[in-house]
Design a protein around this nucleic acid. Structure first.
Lengths: 338, 338
DNA sequence: CTGAAAGCGCTTACAG
DNA sequence: CTGAAAGCGCTTACAG
């Protein structure tokens, strides 16, 4: 059996109160004698005492745990952010519960409820599509919540996103400056605000350069089975616009799948096309060293997500605290070539 | 405030006992009248009752949560396994706490203690180096534990690993059969049993083919700052053995770093060398389509890790249960070309 | 300087 | 068919 406060107290003929106070560092404040302090500490050490944090949580109403919900744990971007979140949470004394929504709204709702029932102090969420029912409930009950990567403009929730439109604009503009006339946009999940902004940036750059938008150059890949759908999308682009000379990828996944497509068809894409993508992955260094990228500030996203969440948790304690007031837009680092 | 059992009980003029029984599905067993059942369920629904799982955990002594400790959350292999573990855990009604040890023994020990204090029912661990103190403690106290990727032969703990030696042997043998005479081995962390086995497989294949082991062809990259160290290691190999004609990479990370090196020096590695690596990553499809790989059975690793852990948790309940008896070696899928 | 007691929100053996 | 009570292992206001 694990040793408890009571075991130590009995062994030392002290009360649980006293033992608890010295072990939680309140000895000085409560004026416990040095002798007793030493005794308790030594005994706890010897018996390898570990406090039962579940009991503490139940008592103090805080678990020092936060929940993280991702569309996919194994995606390069999300797992990188997860890593930063875990680091930052840990530095602040918080543990992390993690779960994949697999881009499924029902699953996301379930996890949201479960995490709350399990007593997490707050939740960081990269939301899936228009999954608002459970989120609204959380917000209504003033539960600490931060969204990242995606967000709901109409909801009073804090979020961290990147400058989607600006980065997309700059990347597309750069391709135009390098001489591209027919730039394809490869995108997905058009109902996400994030993807909407990226499309807007692309369109704005074209408009400013006086290039007419060609719908045949916009390839929207369905998320389900995207590795198959993208082939159709690309085939269609090459058929309708054979002189396509540039590609702007709204995500790294789309870029990589397209490179595979190019390889399978023996297309020497590095020479033939201007390339640009949101998010920088190490694969690019080898496969497409000259691709222009907007590097997602993974470190800052993770840092801000937990910083903001901790502030939300703080302001929950005060009834006066405002909620959902942090709307943070982080700039990407642009890597432009030539 | 969140609604509790008590709130429902008071509202309905019932006891907490009765409410608890119907809400935990024991109504029939305890012979609660249909009428009462309906009443309670409806009321819980209306008040959006969510049980406080922390209170339940404290009472029943199980949190339905498992802990996962990884050297790095963002690594492709570990995050893929994490994803499978989360899925499988979730299917079995368990949540996941996750943390990065960052390959730091002290940090690993800290997390191990913390997770236990937080009441996880068991821990899945990809251990770091020779970090045994805290692990021994866990085993001594019969705490459910499963190790994966790496293991401690002398410890009575269950583990899941791959057939490191066999896969390495087969890959090296294949390179030899394809005509390679001077195959370099690029490895790291030699104190890990895992890496030891991979080296053994390489050596055995050479021995069987009657090729004398050339120490100048064995490049061991220090883990710290490996992206810098690998340059030295590779420079040295090319200097001492200019006619090196094959590379066996003990991990995908080493392969990718080497490809970067090749690219920087303008070496057309796909034509010039026989290539082989443990672990299959999507980057290879594009960068080195003909590399021979042993694909790690990520799905099976994740599945077995939680299956075994759940069995350990079960056998903990019975005092008779054996511990640490599952030693599972999973085969890799070989992808050999030519 | 130290302790008895209540309480966090559940579950469950016992009683009727 | 239903309930009173104890207990899980802590913390903390109150008392001395």
């Amino acid at each position: 059996m694990r040793v408890s406060l009571k075991d130590i107290a009995e062994k030392l003929n002290l009360s649980k109160t006293t033992v608890s106070w010295v072990l939680t560092g309140q000895a000085e404040k409560k004026g416990i004698s040095k002798a007793t302090q030493e005794l308790v500490k030594k005994c706890a050490e010897e018996m390898d005492y570990q406090p039962n944090l579940i009991a503490r949580s139940l008592n103090v109403g805080s678990s020092k745990t936060i929940g993280l919900i991702l569309p996919s744990i194994s995606d390069d971007f999300y797992s990188s952010v997860a890593r930063e979140i875990e680091k930052n949470a840990s530095n602040n004394g918080y543990s992390l519960m993690i779960a994949s929504s697999e881009s499924n709204v029902e699953k996301e709702d379930k996890i949201l409820r479960l995490f709350r029932a399990k007593g997490v102090d707050g939740i960081i969420l990269a939301p899936t599509k228009r999954s608002k029912r459970e989120i609204e409930r959380l917000i209504d009950s003033k539960f600490p919540l931060v969204t990242f990567d995606r967000f709901f403009p109409e909801l009073q929730a804090s979020y961290i996103i990147i400058d989607n439109k600006e980065s997309s604009y700059e990347l597309t503009k750069h391709l135009i400056e390098k001489g591209c006339k027919n730039i394809a946009l490869i995108t997905t999940n058009p109902h996400l605000t994030t993807m909407g902004y990226r499309t807007e940036g692309y369109e704005q750059a074209l408009a400013e350069a006086g290039i007419k938008l060609n719908p045949a150059l916009i390839g929207c890949v369905e998320y389900e089975d995207y590795d198959k759908n993208i082939v159709k999308v690309l085939d269609s682009i090459f058929e309708k616009v054979p002189d396509v000379d540039g590609f702007f990828f709204a995500t790294h996944i789309l870029a990589i799948e397209t490179f595979l497509y190019f390889n399978n068809r023996g297309i020497d894409f590095n020479e033939r096309f201007g390339l640009a993508s949101i998010h920088k992955v190490s694969t690019f260094d080898i496969v497409a060293p000259k691709i222009n990228v907007a590097e997602m500030p993974v470190f800052d996203i993770g840092k801000n997500a937990v910083d903001v969440l901790l502030r939300e948790i703080e302001s929950q304690k005060k009834t006066t605290g405002k909620r959902g007031q942090y709307k943070i837009v982080l700039p990407c680092s642009l890597f432009l070539f030539d």
